[in-house]
């Protein structure tokens, strides 16, 4: 699926004064897939159809990302994104959902699970930011306000493409990079991404550390073991702090594990769904 085809599937929802674009597919218990930085919902296009066979899958673009609102005048922190996701769920009539987050999307998911636990049925985080694992050096530089004047949109995309290669274990998967970075090829897109990077804040995960042990829902921590951006020892720390959690190490996978090992990731997700939130009531 090309990024343009994926974009055409997006529907839109007003959340307060902003708008959120998202893809929705399938029926059943709701599952929300949250991307990280610097990508958008297209990240999930390789695996979502399989999940949508038994689930109502929803894939939002976070504020300031992809084809959601990119105006220059609002907060894009993971705290704000967590509020946006819960407000958006309310708007769609979804009281609780299984939430899956990758990278900073995992940070958003962790904040929802700790601060709005009633909204989360089950939690899956993949190579997530947590504790003081972030922001990575590249994003710190990218988020500097002067970056807007110092680098053009085309240069910014070239630099990101180069850096993100390290997130894939296989070069064939790098073909999706064009699509992942497509929304940021304009000056507006670049500025939005710079603002997104400027909003990355370690404190927003460190401040919930003491709440992690209070997460009482089934939790799966999936981790590409070769990730250089978010090393696996953070995943190991997470499962010690979240009592109901399990860590699955995905071999031969880096940061973008859903692209490096799509079948394995999908299988683990479906297994976890069946054990935690079956699509049909269990026969007694």
């Amino acid at each position: 699926m090309t990024w343009r085809e994926f974009q055409r599937l997006q529907i839109v929802s007003r959340v307060n004064a902003r708008f959120v674009s998202y893809v929705e597919a399938g029926e059943g218990p709701p599952v929300i897939l949250i991307h990280g930085i610097p990508v958008w919902g297209y990240l999930w296009h390789g695996i979502y159809s399989e999940l949508a066979r038994t689930r109502r899958v929803l894939i939002p673009d976070l504020l300031g990302f992809g084809f959601s609102d990119k105006a220059d005048g609002f907060d894009r922190s993971i705290a704000c994104q967590a509020h946006m996701i819960t407000a958006w769920m309310t708007q769609l009539g979804i009281p609780r959902a299984t939430i899956i987050g990758h990278d900073i999307g995992g940070g958003v998911a962790l904040r929802i699970a700790t601060l709005f636990p009633a909204r989360v049925e089950a939690l899956i985080v993949m190579n997530t930011v947590c504790y003081d694992s972030w922001p990575i050096e590249l994003m710190l530089q990218f988020g500097h306000p002067e970056a807007h004047r110092k680098i053009s949109a085309s240069l910014a995309v070239r630099l990101l493409r180069q850096a993100l290669k390290r997130g894939f274990s296989s070069s064939r998967n790098r073909n999706i990079m064009e699509g992942l970075l497509a929304p940021y090829t304009t000056e507006t897109g670049k500025l939005s991404l710079i603002r997104n990077a400027a909003a990355l804040n370690t404190n927003l995960t460190t401040e919930i550390t003491h709440l992690l042990s209070g997460i009482k829902i089934p939790t799966l921590v999936l981790w590409g073991v070769k990730d250089r951006f978010q090393p696996i020892h953070y995943g190991e720390r997470l499962v010690k702090d979240i009592h109901e959690s399990r860590l699955i190490r995905v071999k031969d996978a880096r940061h973008f594990l859903m692209w490096d090992q799509p079948e394995i990731v999908t299988k683990h997700l479906l297994d976890f769904f069946d054990r935690t939130v079956p699509s049909r009531p269990l026969m007694v």
Partner: peptide
């Protein structure tokens, strides 16, 4: 000030 709901002036090169 820019109206809250105004679309950003996003443009192709």
């Amino acid at each position: 000030g820019i109206p809250l709901r105004m679309y950003p002036m996003e443009m192709i090169d």
